[in-house]
Structure formats: structure tokens, C-alpha cells
Simulated scan of single mutants.
Amino acid sequence: MPLESTFFQRDRTLHPPALTEQYKSSVLRSPKTPLFSLQNSLSEVTGPVFRAAELGPLDNDLILNYAHDGEPIGERIVVHGRVLDENGRGVPNTLVEFWQANAGGRYRHKNDTYLAPIDPNFGGCGRALTDETGAYVFRTIKPGAYPFRNYANSWRPAHIHFSLFGSAFAQRLITQMYFEGDPLIRHDQILSTIPDPEARQRLIASLDMNAAVPLDSLAYRFDIVLRGRRQTFFENKRQGT
């Protein structure tokens, strides 16, 4: 496989271990034997490829993309940022998918039986494609906190789930974004499974007043860093081009 098609090794010390006893679900979900390290296949480093024509005009507008007889209830926000590789370069044309609970902390999912009501005008999911600089943006309703069955009185802080493909399956990332200033963050038993405090901090979006919409929406910035490529350059060109 050509050198320019390989990716930097992941730093496993930044990721939560598979088994973390304070997060009870991991006890049943974690593997019982050591994982194998395999060489990336050609398909994992060359695809998938997404195009703007595959997205709808309201895919990145969670305020309107499920509205039926009005707009959803809750605090309107804009979330934006850049998708970068480990060398700090923007990753263009990468699919960013996001999903979340509504303002009351309830998901539109048949298994969510939390007592907060379903918002008939909020679907809670969307997607966007990064531009040539790796930038993405969407607007939504700020999600609410909700309890979960981990320990007595366990609550999840407000968060948005993200799924990214990067430039190839080998960059695949699923993560969560939290909000600056949320007092529940330090009590979250899922976020605390990440051993590095600095790595946990990188999952918290910063309030960005410069991107806020006056009399409409606050804004939060959330930059996402994927794995980088080992590139060999010759006269400012990638070898082989």
C-alpha cells in the first residue's frame, strides 16, 4: 500500500478503556479478549466519497427539517467548527452527522420513555458536508439533560452526538459534544471514562458570541480532529501526483 495512503496510529491512551466499571453498560459490552491490530485495507483508506447533491436543503437545519405546524420549543443555537486532520489541515467534503435529545431531554426513539414530552416539531437529527476548508455549520435547539440508569440520580449533561467519516473509513469517528459551563459535566460517568483531562476538555464546545445571531441564537464552536496522513512531499507536491 502506498505510504501516502496510510494513517497515523491512534493514541489509545486518549480513548476510554473498553471496560470502565463506573459506566455499568461497559461491563457487558466490553470485549473479553485483547484486540487484534490489522493493516488497513484499500477500501478503508480510499472511501467513502460524499457529494453536496446527496444532501437536502434543510439537512443541517434541525429547527426546520422536522417542523410540521410550528417550530420546536427551546433555546435556538448555532453549532459550527472545522474538521481537521492531525496535521491541522481542513478535511473537505466529509459527512458530519448529528443527533440529539430535544429541549426537554428526550430522544425521538421508541426506546426512550423519559417523562419529558416529545416535541412534535423536532426530529433531532441532521447532517452537513464540510466545505473546502473543512468547515461545517448547523442550527438546532439546545438539548436538555436527562437521567439514565447507571447509579442513583445519574444524569447526562446536555450533549450532541456526532458521526464523521473523514476522507476514508479509517478516519471514522463517533463522539459527543458538550457545552461550556454545564455544571453536570463534572458529574458525568460516561465522559469521565476518558482518562486524560485535556482530552475530555476537547469535547466541550466553546461559547462563540461572534457567531451568534442577534435576537435569535447563541453559537458554539466545536472543532473536530481526525487522524492525519503521513505524506511525503516533493517540490510542494504529494509523491505520485
Rank of each mutant, 00 (worst) to 15 (best):
G144T: 01
G144F: 01
G144V: 04
G144R: 03
G144I: 00
G144L: 04
G144D: 00
G144A: 03
A145W: 05
A145F: 05
A145R: 04
A145D: 11
Y146G: 00
Y146D: 05
Y146A: 02
Y146P: 04
P147D: 03
P147C: 01
P147L: 00
P147I: 01
F148N: 02
F148D: 05
F148I: 00
R149I: 00
R149K: 13
R149S: 11
N150A: 02
N150H: 06
N150W: 00
N150V: 01
Y151T: 15
Y151G: 12
Y151W: 08
Y151L: 14
A152S: 14
A152G: 13
A152N: 12
N153T: 10
N153R: 13
N153V: 05
S154Y: 04
S154V: 02
S154A: 13
S154I: 00
W155Y: 15
W155M: 11
W155H: 12
W155Q: 10
R156D: 13
R156V: 04
R156H: 15
R156P: 03
P157G: 08
P157Q: 01
P157R: 01
P157I: 03
A158K: 11
A158P: 08
H159G: 05
H159D: 06
H159A: 12
H159L: 10
I160V: 15
I160R: 07
I160W: 02
I160F: 03
H161I: 12
H161T: 15
H161G: 13
H161W: 08
F162R: 05
S163P: 04
S163N: 13
S163E: 13
L164K: 02
L164G: 09
L164I: 07
L164C: 08
L164D: 08
L164N: 06
L164V: 07
G166K: 05
G166W: 01
G166H: 08
G166C: 10
G166R: 04
S167E: 15
S167M: 12
S167P: 09
S167L: 09
S167I: 01
A168Y: 02
A168V: 02
A168D: 10
F169Q: 09
F169I: 04
F169H: 14
F169E: 13
F169M: 13
A170C: 12
A170Q: 10
A170L: 09
A170R: 07
A170M: 02
Q171D: 06
Q171K: 07
Q171W: 01
Q171P: 03
Q171M: 07
Q171S: 09
Q171A: 10
R172K: 09
R172V: 12
R172E: 12
L173W: 01
L173A: 05
L173P: 03
L173Q: 08
L173C: 00
L173F: 06
L173E: 07
I174F: 06
I174T: 14
I174V: 14
T175P: 05
T175V: 06
T175S: 14
T175D: 07
T175E: 07
T175Y: 10
Q176G: 04
Q176A: 13
Q176F: 00
